[in-house]
Nucleic acid binder design. Structure first.
Lengths: 219, 219
DNA sequence: CCATTTATGCAACTTAGGTTGCAAAGCTAG
DNA sequence: CTAGCTTTGCAACCTAAGTTGCATAAATGG
C-alpha cells in the first residue's frame, strides 16, 4: 500500500501495515485515536529536551536517532525503520521525562502518532502490544550495544565504512548523499579527518567520492 | 533482613525484599518456584556465549555487567544493584539467544534465580511484573546511554575519575580495592595509561594511591 | 630469610585522530 | 558572467592515548 492509499483508506492501510504484529481490535483502536504525520527528509522530529505527547511508530521511511551533549557534540545511535517504534520515546512516556535524544528523518517518512496515555492502557489490555513494546526495547538495546561496540572497539576508518554500508542498506542505494561534514557529525569526528579517511578508502578502491555524494560499489 | 534471616525464613525475607515493587500473589509464586543463589566477590556469574536458564534478580550486593569482543577486549557497561534485574538477560529469555554480556559480582551477593519460562507467563498475568520489567529496560537503556556518553564525549582522565566515584558510591567506601590493571580492563585501556592518569589525579590532590588500593577523599 | 610473583613507576617512542589555515574547485543566485 | 557561498583537498602541527622494555617495590610462600 502506498501513501496515497493511506489517505484514501486509513483503515485498510493500517490493518495492512500492522496486522503482522498487532491484533485486530488494537489496530481498530489505533485507527480511531492516532494521527498520521508526514515528515520530509532531514526534518528534525524531536530534539533533546523536548517533551513527548505521542508515541511514534514508523510506517514508511526511516528515522535517525542521535545523542547530543551540552556542547552540541552529536553521535548517531541507531536507526528506526518501518514497523518500529522508538524505545527512548517509550521511556519518556512511561516516566513523563523529557527526551534525551534527537530524532531526524532520513528521507520523506510517514509516522503514526499515538497519544502517550494509551501506552499503559494497552499494555494491560493487549498481549500483542506488550510483545510489540518488549520487542522494541529488545531491538533498541541490541542496537545500542552495537553502537557501544563500534565506538569502544573499532577504529574510525572501520566505523566510517560501517556507517556508509549501513546508510546504503537503509536507504536502498549505493549512493550516499552526504557531505563530509554531515558524516563527521554523525560519527562525532571532524570534517578534515573524515575527508582524510574517505580519501584512503577511495585509494583502496572501496568507494568513489563525488561532491555531496559517496558511491559504494557493493554492500 | 539479613542473609541469615533468609535461610531461616525465605517467605518473609522475599516478601520484605520485593513487596515494594511486586504484588503479593506474585511473590508467593516466586517463593515456590525460584532458587536463591549466593555468589562471592569477583565471581564470574555469566559469560559471553552462555545460555540462560534463569532470570536473575539481585537481592543483595552488586553485579558488574561488561561487554567483551572477540579479541578479549572488555568494557564495563553498567552495574546492577539490589532489587534490579538484568535487561540483557531478559532479552536472552524472550528470544532464547545466548548471552552477549559478561556478569561479574563486585562483592559477595545474593541472587534470586527465576526460571526463564515464567517471564512470559507472568508478563501476561501480573501487572506489577510488567511494570518491573519495563522499569528494568528503562533503567538499562538510560545507563547504557550514559556509557555511550562517557566513551564518546569524555576524555579518559574524566572517565577514570567517574569510574572511581561510581565504584565508591556503589560499594559504599572511599577505598577502591583494585589494581591499575583491573581498572584498565574495565575502562578498556592499558595499565600504563591508567597508572599515568592516576598519578596525575594524585598530584592534583583528588586521590591517594596505595598498592591494590585507590583512596578518594570525597564522593 | 630469601626467592618468586605481583604491582607500580618511568622513559622513549608510535599512532590515531583532532586542529588550523589556506587554496582550489563546484555550485548558485543576481 | 561574476561574486559569493559551499564543499573538498592539502600541509603542518598538536595531543591523548597506546606500546615496549625495564627498574623498583611490595607481598607471598616456602
Amino acid at each position: 500500500m502506498t501513501r496515497t492509499q493511506l489517505k484514501e483508506n486509513k483503515h485498510d492501510y493500517l490493518h495492512d501495515a500492522l496486522s503482522y504484529v498487532l491484533e485486530g481490535p488494537l489496530i481498530d483502536e489505533i485507527i480511531k485515536i492516532s494521527q498520521v504525520k508526514e515528515v520530509f527528509a532531514d526534518e528534525i522530529i524531536l530534539n533533546v529536551g523536548d517533551s513527548m505527547q505521542y508515541i511514534p511508530i514508523v510506517l514508511e521511511g526511516s528515522i535517525k536517532i542521535s545523542r547530543e551533549n551540552d556542547e552540541g557534540d552529536e553521535l548517531l545511535l541507531y536507526y528506526i525503520e518501518g514497523g518500529d517504534t522508538c524505545a527512548m520515546t517509550l521511556q519518556c512516556c512511561v516516566r513523563h521525562t523529557l527526551s534525551e535524544i534527537k530524532a531526524t528523518s532520513m528521507e520523506d517518512s510517514l509516522l503514526l502518532m499515538i497519544p502517550i496515555e494509551m501506552m499503559e492502557t494497552w499494555m494491560n489490555k493487549y498481549r500483542s502490544w506488550r510483545e510489540f513494546i518488549l520487542q522494541s526495547y529488545h531491538t533498541r538495546l541490541t542496537e545500542l550495544m552495537e553502537t557501544v561496540d563500534a565506538i569502544a572497539f573499532m577504529r574510525l576508518d572501520e566505523r566510517l565504512l560501517k556507517y556508509l554500508t549501513d546508510q546504503a542498506k537503509l536507504l536502498g542505494s549505493l549512493e550516499i548523499q552526504h557531505t563530509h561534514q554531515q558524516i563527521a557529525e554523525d560519527l562525532h569526528s571532524s570534517r578534515v579527518v573524515i575527508s582524510r579517511l574517505l580519501k584512503q578508502l577511495e585509494i583502496k578502491g572501496k568507494i568513489k567520492i563525488q561532491r555531496n555524494k559517496i558511491i559504494l560499489d557493493s554492500i
